[in-house]
Simulated scan of single mutants.
Amino acid sequence: MNTKDPKIINISIVGSGPGDPELLTVKALKRIQNADIILHDNLISEEILNLASAKAQKIYVGRKFGDIEDSMTRQDAIHDLFLEYAQQDKKIVRLKSGDSFIFGRVAEEIRFLTQQNIAFEVIPGITAGMAAANSQHIPLTERNKTNSVLFCTGHTATYDFEQLDALANMLKTGTTLIMYMGYKNLKEVITVFKRIATDETLYISAVSKVSQADETIFTGTLDEIEQKLELETIPMPVVFIVGKYAFPIDANLTKI
């Protein structure tokens, strides 16, 4: 199977970025505009969905927080749709938010397509953490300050002690942490970091609705963010950037 040959590709797995259609890659835009079927996730913006042609059938296959449907049942349904429309020689776009390989469960779909001998391609997208950092002028790496970036989810708070200890030490030595799906467990995450990184001042920037017109940022130390969360609710979706220098370079903060 030659998944590099566009003549035989049945399915395009497309990263749609954080929501702004101008942040799509050129290839992603072409696939969306030429699709017969679009299987899309929850956080795909209306502006991006509206780029599809009038003939395209848009099918929601996403999952929201609080949904009661079992994740495996939902994934099996997506696989069934792959088979159904690939057998009809439809041009299928599997549209995922951000980048498909950043917490997008794309591995399960690729394994299934490979097992079924269905040709596919994967088109990268801008993940929300990268978009947030660029939009808000937060350097994820900087010479002599931040030397690495780590992507994780809010389940960070449930890591075992050795993992948490290693993570805290990475933060202290210059790693920037990008955390997705962390709002629910944020207070627990903050508590853990404060306990382990006691000798360091760590900042959190919470960026809400990345790339949208009403994008908002909440920035402060671990203690300050805790206080802000008690006073305000951060509009979802939100991505968190954590580290010694995890704040906009033009912010009026004491530690620059």
Rank of each mutant, 00 (worst) to 15 (best):
K4I: 13
A52F: 07
E230S: 08
T216A: 04
T176F: 09
V149F: 05
D36V: 11
K244P: 10
C152A: 15
H79K: 13
I241L: 12
G154T: 09
A56Y: 02
M130D: 01
N252S: 14
A206D: 12
D199Y: 10
G129Y: 01
V189Y: 01
V14S: 04
V238T: 14
L253R: 09
D80W: 03
L229E: 06
I32N: 00
D250Q: 11
L81E: 02
C152H: 06
I59E: 03
E46K: 14
I178A: 01
S208Q: 11
Q33P: 02
A131H: 05
L49C: 05
L51W: 10
S53M: 09
Y245L: 09
L150E: 05
M170Q: 13
N10W: 02
N252R: 11
A206N: 06
S71C: 10
M236T: 14
K91Y: 08
V93M: 08
S71T: 13
Y203Q: 03
I217L: 09
T141N: 07
L29I: 06
N117C: 08
I13Y: 04
T146V: 10
K187E: 15
V239W: 01
A246L: 08
V106I: 13
F218R: 05
I32M: 04
S100Y: 07
H79N: 15
F101W: 12
A213N: 11
A133R: 00
E84H: 15
E108Q: 12
A86F: 10
G62E: 12
M179W: 06
K64M: 13
T175Y: 08
L222R: 01
I196Q: 03
S53Y: 07
L140Q: 03
T127M: 03
I217A: 04
G154I: 12
R94D: 04
D214S: 09
R143G: 06
A119H: 12
T141C: 09
A77Y: 05
M170Y: 13
K255Y: 14
K187I: 15
I196F: 07
A246V: 06
G104F: 03
E188H: 15
D76I: 15
G15L: 08
Q227M: 11
S205W: 01
R74T: 04
V242F: 07
D80G: 05
Q87A: 14
D199V: 04
H40K: 06
L23M: 12
F112T: 08
I249K: 10
Y245G: 02
K30G: 03
T254G: 04
A28W: 00
S100K: 05
T176D: 13
N2H: 15
F65M: 08
G66A: 11
G66S: 12
M1K: 10
F82Y: 14
T221Y: 02
I9G: 05
S211F: 05
I190C: 04
